[in-house]
Design a protein around this nucleic acid. Structure first.
Length: 913
RNA sequence: GGGCGCGUAGCUCAGCGGUAGAGCACUACGUUGACAUCGUAGGGGUCACUGGUUCGAUCCCAGUCGCGCCCA
């Protein structure tokens, strides 16, 4: 065997073997009647590259899948990719532009879509290869794409289904409009970006010579003390360009300043439109002047006000967010528009903003400007400010289908881990808004609705069917495509073959666990719940495991602009996939972001090496794997101890995984392998292997082989590559590790308390010796003699059995059972007393100082115990076991104090004090 | 403004009503035939702060301060 595991050489080879052996296929290795276990991969965007979030998310899934597969479940990890409407269209458009080809619009819809498919075939599978690098054991033979024929049919089927049930409708509503992509986007695709901007105040002149008293000074109680007479209202805005679409000014109904002005009107500057003053509680008297301009076609709140107060909506922008005025009948109606206003026609919204502010200043209706930080909605893809925009769109009336999704979680049919995310889920569902599902894109599932010349709608799965419904009238298909999340909402049933009645649906649906980041609870999880329940009337999964985000080592979100992105593939290249996986797993504590640092990965790469070398040790000592090895049949206490410890480790891994405590599982295995198997079991076994007792040596070889083999099985879900490689090198058995049985060990059956106590005693004794040596500043190689001053029966057996390993690990030259000790310091291990004979040249002064500080510590601890026991309330009220423990601890401390005291006396006399 | 979460060793984090833990980093010593990607030992903490409950609080409760995220 080589000295290290060469991950870069082995990983791709091993992965190929797994795939070729069919180990990842649905149900591989399972009995026909096995229980099923299914996870659906959150489909990465087909444009995507593997980032740390994916690496984390998929490592967790792979652990669950491999664990269940080894436990004999019929497992399916269903993979696939998402067509990612906007993202993909963007990538292909950019590519066309770069290579100087005709643009999307020049190509036309059909030709463009051909290009997208070409692109998909050419470069769409990159992330799949990266998932393989990570070791993801998906059933790739079932790989799906959300634009596949079958999946596409399912999506249309659901649309039709929901349409016919009345859950989908078309309506003219304000939507978030992305002027860059010229499409509607959903609320969730909008992110608020805090920017420093300006707040402009405009004076809108009152018509018909109306005036009112505006307070200009206040007393201590905030009561106005002075007023001025105004013939205008001041309104404030951060988006002056929208003023041309104002159709009203709102004041609060209880605002006494303005109450007599309600129903009167102001003249909208530039546009020359006469607009009404309305009373609506949306206007906050405390904010600004208490008067708000109302632009129903370009603001969500204003739209609501307009609905309530009967104000018209005037759209003044094009889909590209430039001004449209000259040929805009809506805008011109009833207006006496100034020529300088018409000159704004065609200007971009920001140019128009500047011009309008200039004009306001010149014409004297600019009341003032202030700097302000405020949140501006941006498209999450395009990164440009979105405009609320009035268009015809398709909506899912989410309110109507939300109830079953809430009930399922409330009554526990679907559980969310950790539970704190339930409240996020409910908070969103309880306040759900209509979901805008149409996008003005080309790449995606085109809405299956056709229109005839009169505008009648025909919703059908095909043009032929629609035509039949239309009675042969000429029809035209709706140009919009569906929101990508609408189709991914169907991922559970869609990937399993619905609407066909497939065996996979019968066997694997509802699925078991969904593993996902909290950032897509709304986008995806809640919608899958709603849609599966609406369409097939069943929950899509019984558990949702929600994990946090992977951040950089300082807690910053990884982003290209910050330059702190860690590429998981780079890490895999450098440290191996096993180390990367183990790092992420060990940090997967519930509900907390994980901060990733490279040094941690390096640390777990060392763990891989440690495992490797444990196996190498077994090889050097001819510890061959034996099929007939019976862990219950070993007799030597060391072997009995490790057998029990292995069972205990198995049980804690199982318990941790069952509770989704991946960190506990990983840390437990790390501790078991490194600090039990390597540090003590292998070390203590060395003399046994060299002993003349062939029977013990043989049993120990077998147990070492067994312990290493069990470790490989236990570690396999976490570190599949190195364990698979060692499984083969150690010739542990037929077939690959991936399909071997998970250890079924019961510590109740295998644990031997006597052996445990014995080994624990040996470990303590060696620990004392090492610690004394080091504290006395003795070199590691200085020979020491251990004097045994008192020895009880049990300890005597332990000492006899482990004399050689104790000498070796404690680096003793001699163990003297009889005769007086010339040691300074005695120490108690178990019920026996020991002393180390130290060389004459030690620094006595230093030793004295150390003992005195030790005594100080004991005294302080002792006084705590005494105080506690002296407290009558403690003795009577605390549980008896706690009182007893305290008494025991006190007695222990007193014993130790005596030993220390004696040692101090002895040292003092040696020093002549 | 509403909600959620977090403040524990230099760093990253576990933990828990009764002796404060891990990994990394740090210091000293060390190549003994698995492993220097290693071994042994060690230093380092007012468990954010203030009150309360309790025999006992790092842990439970309330408040304060600081930080992060989500929603408006």
């Amino acid at each position: 065997m080589e000295q290290f595991f060469d991950a870069s050489e082995a990983e791709q080879r091993i992965y190929r073997q797994w795939e070729e052996s069919g180990a990842f296929l649905a149900g591989a290795g399972a009995q026909d009647d096995a229980e099923s276990f299914c996870i659906l991969i959150p489909p990465p965007n087909v444009t995507g590259a593997l980032h740390m979030g994916h690496a984390f998310n998929n490592t967790i899934q792979d652990i669950l899948i491999r664990w269940h597969r080894m436990r004999g479940f019929a497992t399916l990890w269903q993979p696939g990719t998402d067509h990612a409407g906007i993202a993909t269209q963007m990538v292909v458009e950019r590519e066309l532009e770069k290579s100087g080809q005709p643009s999307r619009r020049e190509l036309g819809r059909e030709a463009f879509l051909e290009r997208v498919w070409e692109w998909k075939e050419r470069s769409g599978g990159e992330i799949i290869g990266q998932l393989k690098r990570l070791g993801a054991s998906c059933d790739w033979s079932r790989n799906r794409f959300t634009m596949d024929k079958g999946f596409h049919d399912a999506v249309l089927q659901v649309f039709i289904n929901l349409y016919e049930q009345g859950y989908i409708y078309r309506g003219k509503r304000l939507v978030n409009w992305d002027p860059h992509f010229e499409t509607a986007i959903s609320d969730l695709e909008v992110e608020q970006v805090e920017v420093s901007g300006k707040m402009w105040r405009f004076r809108y002149p009152l018509e018909n010579d109306e005036t009112y008293q505006h307070p200009i000074a206040y007393d201590e109680d905030g009561e106005p003390t002075a007023f001025e007479t105004r013939d205008y209202l001041v309104v404030a805005t951060t988006r002056p360009e929208t003023m041309l679409g104002d159709t009203g000014v709102a004041v609060h109904p209880d605002d006494s300043r303005y109450s007599h002005l309600v129903s009167k009107s102001v003249k909208l500057p530039l546009a020359g439109r006469s607009i009404r003053i309305v009373a609506d509680s949306y206007a906050d008297p405390e904010k600004g002047t208490g008067a708000v301009k109302i632009t129903p076609a370009h603001d969500f709140n204003d739209w609501e006000v307009a609905q309530r107060c009967g104000l018209p909506a005037v759209n003044v922008m094009t889909p590209k967010a430039s001004m449209t005025l000259k040929d805009n009948a809506e805008f011109l109606e009833g207006c006496d528009t100034a020529p300088e206003a018409l000159d704004l026609d065609g200007l971009d919204r920001y140019d128009a903003r500047r011009r309008i502010v200039d004009l306001a200043r010149q014409q004297g209706w600019l009341d003032g400007v202030s700097e302000e930080r405020h949140a501006v909605p941006h498209g999450d893809r395009s990164k440009v400010a979105v405009e609320p925009y009035l268009t015809d769109q398709w909506f899912v009336d989410a309110k109507q289908i939300v109830q079953p999704a809430m009930d399922a979680v409330r009554d526990g049919r679907t559980r969310i881990y950790p539970a704190q995310y339930e409240s996020i889920y409910f908070a969103w569902l309880e306040n759900i808004e209509p979901w805008c599902i149409s996008r003005q894109l080309w790449w995606g599932h085109q809405v299956p609705v056709w229109y005839d010349a009169e505008g009648n709608r025909y919703c059908a799965a095909s043009e032929a069917e629609a035509s039949r419904l239309a009675g042969g009238r000429s029809i035209e298909r709706d140009a919009d495509v569906l929101d990508t999340w609408f189709s991914s909402g169907l991922w559970p049933v869609g990937t399993l073959g619905w609407p066909e009645d497939t065996p996979e649906l019968a066997r694997y649906f509802p699925t078991n666990v969904l593993v996902t980041g909290f950032d897509i609870i709304f986008f995806w999880v809640a919608r899958m719940m709603m849609m599966q329940l609406a369409v097939v009337k069943e929950i899509p999964f019984d558990t949702i495991y929600v994990h946090a985000l992977v951040r950089d080592e300082h807690g910053k979100k990884m982003s290209k602009s910050l330059g702190n992105v860690i590429d998981p593939i780079d890490l895999i290249d450098k440290y191996g996939a096993d180390a990367v996986r183990f790092t992420l797993t060990s940090m997967a504590s519930l509900g907390r972001d994980l901060k990733l640092s490279e040094s941690r990965v390096a640390g777990y790469r060392n763990f891989v090496t440690k495992i490797w070398n444990a196996a190498r040790f077994a090889e050097f000592h001819n510890c061959d794997s034996r099929q007939d090895f019976n862990p219950n049949g070993v007799s030597h206490s060391l072997n009995r101890w490790i057998v029990g410890a292995t069972a205990a480790a198995t049980e804690s891994v199982d318990a941790a995984l069952a509770a989704y405590r991946f960190d506990d599982a990983a840390n437990g295995l790390y501790d078991f392998l490194w600090h039990k198997v390597c540090d003590w079991y292998i070390e203590l076994s060395k003399p046994l292997l060299a002993t003349g007792n062939a029977e013990v040596a043989l049993e120990t070889r077998g147990t070492i082989a067994w312990a290493v083999e069990q470790s490989l099985r236990l570690l396999h879900p976490f570190m599949p590559f190195v364990t698979e490689e060692l499984w083969a090198l150690r010739k542990c058995g037929e077939g690959m590790l991936v399909l071997q049985q998970w250890p079924m060990l019961s510590s109740e059956e295998l644990r031997d308390p006597g052996a445990d106590a014995k080994i624990q005693w040996v470990i303590s004794l060696v620990g004392f010796i090492r610690s004394e040596r080091s504290k006395m500043l003795l070199s590691a190689s200085a020979p020491l003699t251990l004097h045994v001053m008192e020895l009880d029966e049990t300890d005597k057996t332990a000492l006899d059995d482990y004399r050689e390993p104790i000498m070796r690990l404690g680096r003793l030259s001699e163990v003297v059972v009889e005769g007086a000790s010339s040691g300074i310091y005695s120490f108690k291990v178990g019920n026996s007393l020991f002393s180390l004979q130290l060389p004459t040249n030690i620094d006595l002064q230093n030793a004295l100082g150390r003992l005195e500080s030790r005594r100080l510590k004991i005294d302080s601890e002792l006084s705590k115990m005494e105080a506690r026991l002296g407290n009558q309330a403690f003795v009577t009220k605390a549980p008896a076991t706690v009182v007893e423990e305290t008494r025991l601890r006190k007695a222990q401390l007193e014993g130790e104090r005596n030993l220390v005291e004696e040692a101090i006396e002895r040292l003092r006399s040696l020093l002549g004090e």
